[in-house]
Amino acid sequence: MQEQEDTDIIFKPIYKVLILICIAFIVLGALAIYFYGPNQSQVEITEVDSELIRDGIHVRTGLVEAGGLQTVITNCTTCHSSKLIIQNRMGVEQWNSTIRWMQKTQGLWELGANQKVIVNYLVKNYPPLEKGRRQALTNIDWYRLNE
């Protein structure tokens, strides 16, 4: 019994010190993560990737590399995704009316001389495709079906 109490007396201060060290470690670790962790890596990723062009495609946005790309990125991807641009194919008239609609209802600013640059980029790189009244089935992924 006496021996047991003695060890407790010796152990307790050590235990406290250990806990303090652990807490200090956790706090420092959290601070390190907070200040140097994700923020830094996020910045690095954007810096490296934002300008990258691969096979004629601007990697970050998926947009075609061509005259007007930067103007499109600056004005058209602030509010919505570039995916919305890429999947739409329209003529000059329709793009202009879409821009008017965004200005009227969605908070898009006046584009000035940039409007022409943007619309030219869009009709040149994303022209309408003639689809007719019903297209043939394409990209069929054939597989063997055993019924």
């Binding site: 919305l84 999947q87 739409n88 194919r89």
Partner: peptide, 11 residues
């Protein structure tokens, strides 16, 4: 996505 001329919006 099938309309022709194309219609704007999510395809």
């Amino acid at each position: 996505s099938e309309f022709n001329p194309p219609a704007k919006g999510n395809q």
